[in-house]
Design a protein around this nucleic acid. Structure first.
Length: 578
RNA sequence: GCCCUUGUAGCUCAGCUGGUAGAGCACCACCAUGGUAAGGUGGGGGUCAGCGGUUCAAAUCCGCUCGAGGGCUCCA
C-alpha cells in the first residue's frame, strides 16, 4: 500500500513534469488537469495545434532533461488573490480555483520553472523520478471536466514506474493485452467477423466460432433446466404499444433502432426481452401457486450504440442476452435471489472464473417504487452476497431508477476485471404493465420482477473468454479438439477412419488430408491452437495407437487409441485446461 | 456525438518530396509423398474506402461522406 502511495506521488509529479515540458514547447498552451491514474498519469492541454506522435518524443526529451535537474517540488499555501494573479493567463486553472470551496486552503506546487494549482502530494524532488521509468503512451481528446458540451482538450497519457525494470514489465503486460485482443484472435482463429458495409456493430459468427457458441449455449440451457428454469422464445419486433407501455419509447428511444411501418402501425426491433416475457405472464391470470416463474431466453436484441462506443464483440449493436426474468411473491424474494446468485457463481466457475467480486448498487435519487420495496430488495441482495461469502462493494445511489442490483465482476487470467453477471430488481415494469397475482387471501398483488443475465451477452462473454484464454480454449470449448495429421498419403485412409471414430465419441476431430507436408499441417493446427494433434504414420497404424502432440509442444508417442479417447473424455468432462 | 489517428489484394504491410501499384501469407495449377511449427515452380487477384476539388498528371495534396483504432461522453 505504501508502495501504491509512492507510485501515485511519482505519477502525479510526472504529470507536472510533463506539463512543464509542454509549456517549454508551447508557451501559449492552456493547462487543465493532470492527475495520477492507474499505472500512470495524464495531463489535459489546450494547444495551438494538434499534437503528432512525433511530438511525444520531443516532450519526452524535455521531461528527461527536467528530471535530471533535480528540481524540488515546493508546496505553498496561497490566498485566492495570489493564486488568481499567478494563473491569470490560465483560464482552466482559474475555473478550478473558483471551484475550491470557500474556506479550504489553496495550495500550489512549484518545481522551479513550473507552478501548478494542486493539492498534492508530490515527491520531494525530480531526482526521485526515473528518467527511464516512464513512457508517454498516447494522445487523446477529452472534454474539459468530462462534459460533452465543454471544449475538447488534448490529453496526453503516460505510464510511470519507480525504475526502468518495472516500466519494462508493464510494457510487456501491455504487449500481452495486445496479443490477447479478441478482435485479432477472432481473425486469426477464423471465429467471427464484422462487416462495415453490412452494418457496423453486427456480428457474423463463422463455423469455428459458432461451434464454441453452441457449446456455451447448450451448456447454458442444460444448466438452466437443472436449476428450475423454463425456456421461452419471443419475437424480435413488437408494436409501439408494447414500448409505450414499457416506457422505452419515453426514455430509451434514442437507444432503439428506428421503427418500421406496417399496416399503419410502428414496429420496433426489441432492445430488451422483458416486455415480451411480461406478455407471456399476462396471458393468464396468475395465482401465488404459479410463482415463482423463472423464464429464460437467449434473446437477441438490437440497440443503437453510438458509433464511437462500438468495440469488437465487447460493445455491439446486435447481441444475444442470456436473459431470464423471475416473477416472485414478496416472501419468495429472499430465497430466489440467493438461488440466482448461487447459480451465477456456478456458471462463472464452470467457465473457469473463480476470482469474483460483487457490486451492489442502491437507490438513486430519481427512482420509482416505494422505499420499503427498495429496502427489502436491497436487503435481499446483501444477504445473498453475504451468504455466498463474496467480497463486495456498495455503490450508494448507483442503481437504475427502477431497482437495486448486484453486478458480478470476474478477474481474467491477466488480472483484468470484466463485468458479466447482473441481477436487477425492477419496480417499474410490473407497475406499468399492471402485473398481478392472486395471493392466498384472494387479493390481487404485484409480483416482484427480477431481471438477470449470467454471462451478460453471448458476444461479449465470448470475447472475454477469448481474451482470457488468449485463444487457447480448453478442450470442452475448443472449436477443433483434435487434429489428425497423417505423416504421408499412406495414412490418409486410416486417418479418415480415425476421424469417424473420434467423432462418434462426440469429439470435434478433423483429419487434415490437404496437399501439405506434415510439418505444415502441424504448424497450421498449432496456429489454430488445437489442443490435441495426433500424428498417424505406419507405427501408429500397425498398433492401433496415436502419437499425441499437445499444443504446448509436449509430445507423447504411441498411446493406444482407447487410452487417448479416455484421456480426452476426461479432460472434456472435467472442463480441464490443457 | 466530440477530439486525435487511420482506411493500398482475403490477411499483414511497403509505396521518399504527385508521373495511372508492390511484397509475404492465403487462393489456384503443376511437381514433390513427407515423422513433429512453412518443400519447389508457376498463375490469378486491387475502379489504392466513396464522392468532389486542385493539377498536364492524384494511392500520394485539399474538402466532404462512410468505416476502423485510441480516448472523452454515453451505456435508462
Amino acid at each position: 500500500m505504501a508502495n501504491e502511495e509512492k507510485l501515485a506521488k511519482i505519477r502525479h509529479s510526472m504529470a507536472h513534469v510533463m506539463a512543464e515540458a509542454v509549456l517549454e514547447i508551447f508557451p501559449d498552451a492552456q493547462i487543465a488537469i493532470g492527475p495520477s491514474i492507474e499505472n500512470g498519469f495524464y495531463y489535459d492541454f489546450e494547444l495551438p495545434r494538434p499534437l503528432l506522435t512525433e511530438d511525444l518524443d520531443t516532450i519526452t526529451e524535455h521531461m528527461k532533461a527536467i528530471i535530471k535537474q533535480d528540481k524540488k517540488f515546493v508546496r505553498k499555501e496561497v490566498t485566492r488573490q495570489e493564486a488568481a494573479e499567478l494563473f491569470k493567463d490560465q483560464k482552466y486553472k482559474l475555473e478550478l480555483l473558483d471551484a475550491i470551496p470557500e474556506g479550504e486552503a489553496v495550495t500550489i506546487y512549484n518545481q522551479g520553472g513550473f507552478t501548478d494549482l494542486c493539492r498534492g502530494p508530490h515527491v520531494e524532488s525530480t531526482k526521485e523520478l526515473s528518467a527511464d521509468g516512464f513512457k508517454l503512451l498516447s494522445i487523446a481528446g477529452a472534454y474539459w471536466r468530462g462534459k460533452e458540451s465543454n471544449p475538447m482538450l488534448t490529453r496526453i497519457y503516460g505510464t510511470a514506474w519507480q525504475n526502468a525494470k518495472d516500466l519494462r514489465l508493464y510494457l510487456d503486460h501491455l504487449a500481452d493485452i495486445e496479443k490477447r485482443d479478441h478482435r485479432k484472435l477472432g481473425k486469426e482463429l477464423d471465429l467471427f467477423s464484422l462487416h462495415e458495409e453490412a452494418g457496423p456493430g453486427l456480428v457474423y459468427w463463422h463455423p469455428r466460432g459458432a461451434r464454441v457458441r453452441q457449446v456455451i449455449e447448450d451448456f447454458w440451457r442444460q444448466e438452466h433446466y437443472k436449476n428450475g428454469y423454463e425456456m421461452v422464445y419471443t419475437p424480435h419486433v413488437g408494436k409501439s404499444w408494447l414500448w409505450e407501455t414499457s416506457g422505452h419509447l419515453g426514455f430509451y428511444k434514442d437507444g432503439m433502432y428506428p421503427p418500421m411501418e406496417m399496416d399503419k402501425a410502428d414496429y420496433y426491433v426489441k432492445p430488451m426481452n422483458c416486455p415480451f416475457h411480461i406478455m407471456i405472464y399476462q396471458n393468464s391470470k396468475k395465482s401465488y401457486r404459479d410463482l415463482p416463474c423463472r423464464w429464460a431466453e437467449l434473446g437477441t436484441v438490437y440497440r443503437y450504440e453510438k458509433a464511437g462506443a462500438l468495440h469488437g464483440l465487447m460493445r455491439v449493436r446486435g447481441f444475444t442476452q442470456d436473459d431470464a426474468h423471475l416473477f416472485v411473491t414478496p416472501d419468495q424474494m429472499d430465497d430466489e435471489i440467493m438461488e440466482v446468485l448461487r447459480f451465477s457463481l456456478h456458471m462463472l466457475h464452470s467457465f473457469g472464473f473463480n476470482d469474483i467480486h460483487a457490486y451492489i448498487s442502491t437507490k438513486p435519487e430519481k427512482s420509482v417504487g416505494e422505499v420499503e420495496k427498495w429496502d427489502a430488495a436491497t436487503e435481499a441482495l446483501k444477504k445473498a452476497v453475504e451468504k455466498e461469502g463474496l467480497a463486495y462493494d456498495i455503490d450508494e445511489g448507483g442503481g437504475a431508477f427502477y431497482g437495486p442490483k448486484i453486478d458480478l465482476k470476474i478477474k481474467d487470467a491477466i488480472g483484468r476485471e470484466w463485468q458479466l453477471s447482473t441481477v436487477q430488481f425492477d419496480f417499474n415494469l410490473p407497475e406499468r404493465f399492471k402485473m398481478t397475482f392472486v395471493d392466498k387471501d384472494g387479493v390481487e398483488k404485484r409480483p416482484y420482477m427480477i431481471h438477470r443475465a449470467l454471462l451478460g451477452s453471448i458476444e461479449r462473454f465470448f470475447g472475454v473468454l477469448l481474451e482470457n484464454y488468449a485463444g487457447a480454449f480448453p478442450p470442452w470449448l475448443s472449436p477443433d479438439q483434435i487434429a489428425i495429421i497423417p505423416v504421408g498419403e499412406v495414412a490418409f485412409d486410416y486417418s479418415k477412419q480415425l476421424e469417424k471414430r473420434l467423432r462418434a465419441e462426440g469429439f470435434r476431430a478433423v483429419a487434415d488430408l490437404s496437399n501439405e507436408r506434415m510439418n505444415a499441417k502441424i504448424r497450421n493446427a498449432q496456429k489454430l491452437k488445437t489442443p490435441y494433434m495426433v500424428i498417424i504414420g505406419e507405427k501408429e497404424m500397425s498398433g492401433d495407437a496415436v502419437s499425441i502432440r499437445y499444443r504446448n509442444g509436449k509430445q507423447v508417442n504411441l498411446v493406444s487409441t482407447e487410452d487417448f479417447i479416455r484421456e480426452v473424455h476426461k479432460a472434456i468432462d472435467n472442463k480441464e485446461q490443457i
